[in-house]
Design a protein around this nucleic acid. Structure first.
Lengths: 128, 128
DNA sequence: AATGATACATACTTTAGGGTAAGTACTTGT
DNA sequence: ACAAGTACTTACCCTAAAGTATGTATCATT
């Protein structure tokens, strides 16, 4: 797994900004291209590793587990492994992760509204 | 300004995912470490370039304008320059940007809740 | 003539994130 | 004996994003 160097300017800045700006705090936890997408998928209930893979076709396996591990460490989701063979592992949102629901849903709502506008622009452009 | 290469795997994936997942659409627009932070600052009203710089001390000037330009291109904010010397430039949210308010505020709310929990953990740890 | 203020721009370098490809372990099915 | 399914792991590489440092234009002030 890709390790993160502890001391670089950005890491220190992050640490500082962390305490000052609540939005920064969120970005620490859910930034990274795939994280919100994974979380969004888990809003509808717990999923197995393979189910997530299928639900997010363009993600690579490396990215998937990497972020799953990260999200687990950040206590946004909970991993449950049944000691059977072949393995059976499920991921679900933690209480903290579930509290992100309004955030993710506000995102989705905005996206739908905003892309509606953009279609309109595209449409009027295609007429000119 | 740093240019973005048009065709690389990630760019193509982004384009594909873009249409499928609303959260991805949002991430296109507000991902990048500083973007939500800048937007959050502008929620409280229009600000001058220097005001933003002071409000976000750890951001570099390069990152600041780079993201301001990007946000302007994405039509999330509006730049207004008075033709005076020294220059007087203000930035404010566009209608589309203002519609992000629920998102950013949901983020902030979550951050406050979540860090409350974490303080508690830290506190109990310091006792043991 | 030099300094300060404002809002940038630009060249160069580093780093973190993401991508590719291949391998692992363990068992069931053919 | 070999393939297939599950959930990963690991090594290596490449690029986009972020950081550092310095420069620019214009005028007012000292």
């Amino acid at each position: 797994m890709t390790r993160i160097k502890a001391s670089s300017t950005i890491q220190e800045n992050k640490l500082a900004a962390y305490q000052l700006c609540p939005v920064t705090y969120v970005m620490e936890k859910i930034s990274g291209y795939w994280k919100p997408i994974i979380l969004y998928q888990l809003l509808s209930g717990s999923k197995r590793y393979n189910e997530l893979k299928k639900a997010i076709p363009s993600i690579t396996e490396k990215m998937l587990i990497q972020h799953l591990k990260q999200l687990e460490t950040d206590q946004l989701l909970i991993r449950e492994a049944l000691p059977v063979v072949p393995p059976h592992v499920t991921y679900r949102l933690s209480p903290s992760g579930e509290r992100l629901q309004p955030v993710l849903q506000a995102m989705a709502a905005w996206a739908i509204e905003d892309s509606k506008d953009k279609e309109h622009i595209l449409f009027s452009k295609s007429l000119s």
